[in-house]
Write a protein that binds this DNA or RNA. Structure first.
Lengths: 333, 333
DNA sequence: TTTAGTCGAGGAAGCGCTTCCTTGATGAAG
DNA sequence: CTTCATCAAGGAAGCGCTTCCTCGACTAAA
């Protein structure tokens, strides 16, 4: 850890002057100020917020108060449900949950600096389709990090994560379709770059193969509604007599059902559908979806405890936890 | 601010011993330990986390990394949209956003302690139907607080808030209904205990009165879907030839539309409907809703800047900001 | 009785930073 | 040539807490 004294020494000034320069006080000679800035940059100096807070008597942090009902209400999103679980769990500890925003256009390097400057003991990431690059990024820092959702193993670093049993869940989905008598079964996946898509596809194809069924009807999509509709169209073009489909998210299923209706196919009479997630969409859609439930809130909570363990024993190696998924039977099969 | 030294003095022990007692170390005599606990309790001692962090070399805080796309995806909830705006705004500052959970069953006193122990400079609350008691509670603390949504004035304290122009918005709603030729117009409100319900009802009734129309067809509900359906039924029973309705949230409008359909009324042919919020529901419902848009993300951002102002100048008096609402015309009028 | 060992408690240093106060240098005014 | 401001910079104290180290008192063993 590099302190203000290090910077002062490097710049050849007193700690006092260094402090002033860092804080942009005007009573310091421009030349020296520049020297301090250079030294700070060179050494990678990050003011310790605790020391600062102590000396200044301020905290520079504000709370957002989230009442439990607040987050209970956000039951419709993958992210929100996991957040719910995490917040509840962290409230049991004496830790604070700091929200860090990674802006869409922020450079990796800048974000990493920002993260270090936050002086947190660890970080958690709820992985979604759009942030597949975060694991690689965070592996560069030596901060304990736990992911919700298995990162793809493109990076050598031994990453820690908690995840739901995607393979088991998609096996359940395939078997539900098969035991309903379906034989021409397709699948709509999320981005193939994501670990979750890979796992779910694997489980699904293994189950189909085990029953001697064709498992090659695959359409890649993006976990979103519009993408689901488009992929459904592709699948139908490719195999007009399709009688079953496994869709890897409720959101895509909403699109797929729309596309099916638009082509005059009835669900589940003509074609059976199983999706994944069990969000509110599954119950508001017509027909209500048979879907694989992920224990999102439990995953959020487990993410918190896993991080605590990782912080306590960083050398103990990566934590990798898988929580079971279940099939919720409704009207779409 | 009461420090460990104060506690030690009160208990008649050294600071060292007091520290040990507070932290439950075992090398302190039970009797003295109890004395320290008593003194701490009596004085209301709260360890300064910055000092603790500095001395221990740990921070006891963890980050939840929220990528921008994450929160952009949560566009469906009142809370989430405001959170989005707030997080973006706070990311521009050097402050940290700490999430505090207020559990459903937590006592006022306990929560207040918890809040103080968080050592934040200020707090923000996104007011929703369920947390109407938070303003009263927070008024007891002398922490700067900004609410999103006007608290009811049951408390004498001069509270700060940012809010959308509910009166103006409901006036727009009423006028849209009137200019569509509707003359028997009802309204479904949120809980009358909430400032937002009161304001919207006021604007609505004033507009109706100004046109010489009956403004007494009021049904109180709870901002939720099921409640909206029920209230719609009441209104219809009360006035079978109703030809227009103003519903104070998209969520309730979803219920109301369902109830209308169930009774064979077509929207907008038989009855026109205007709602409030402009969440995604407004575009996914059939028909798409004409609704009053609230600038929720702007409100979230403004809440952040208002809090900063309040922290900078606590004596300057309460901040009360109202941002304009607009009518989004779709297919339900 | 002496020696070693235990246990509870306090002194004091120190975490990394800010800031009050002092000092030396420089230039303007008398 | 002195006297005063003015300015840039440093010394040192201190923010509130933890913890290493030391010390005295008391008990058990020799």
């Amino acid at each position: 850890m590099v302190t203000l004294d290090d910077v002062a020494r490097e710049a050849g000034v007193s700690r006092t002057t260094a402090s002033r320069a860092i804080n942009g006080k005007l009573t310091v000679h421009p030349e020296r100020s520049a020297a301090v800035q250079r030294a700070a940059e060179k050494l990678g100096f990050r003011p310790n917020p605790a020391a600062r807070s102590l000396a200044r008597g301020r905290h520079d942090s504000v709370a957002l108060i989230v009442s439990e009902t607040n987050i209970e209400g956000m039951t419709n999103s993958f992210f929100a449900m996991a957040l719910h679980g995490a917040i509840r769990e962290i409230a049991k500890t004496d830790q604070q949950l700091v929200m860090l925003l990674r802006a869409n256009d922020e450079s990796d390097e800048k974000f990493l600096r920002f993260l270090e400057a936050s002086h947190v003991d660890g970080a958690m990431v709820i992985l979604e389709a759009h942030n597949t690059e975060l694991p690689r990024l965070l592996a560069q820092s030596d901060l304990p990090v736990v992911f919700l959702g298995r990162p793809t193993e493109s990076t050598e670093a031994p990453l820690s994560y908690v995840d739901s049993d995607n393979i088991g869940g998609s096996t359940l989905a395939a078997e539900a379709l098969i035991s309903a008598g379906r034989r021409r079964i397709g699948v709509i996946t999320g981005p193939q770059g994501m670990g979750v898509s890979q796992d779910r596809l694997r489980g699904f194809q293994q189950a189909l193969d085990a029953h001697g069924l064709d498992s090659s009807l695959v359409a890649e999509s993006d976990f979103q509604t519009a993408g689901g509709a488009e992929a459904m169209g592709q699948l139908l073009d490719q195999c007009p007599d399709l009688d079953g489909v496994f869709v890897m998210s409720d959101l895509m299923a909403a699109g797929a059902v729309g596309a099916l209706k638009a082509r005059g196919r009835r669900v589940p009479e003509d074609i059976s559908l199983v999706s994944f997630d069990d969000t509110v969409i599954a119950t508001t859609l017509e027909p209500r979806l048979t879907t694989v439930r992920q224990p999102l809130e439990e995953l959020g909570a487990r993410m918190v405890t896993a991080l605590a363990e990782l912080i306590a024993a960083p050398a103990a190696g990566p934590i990798r936890d898988t929580l079971p998924t279940t099939l919720v039977r409704r009207d779409s099969v």
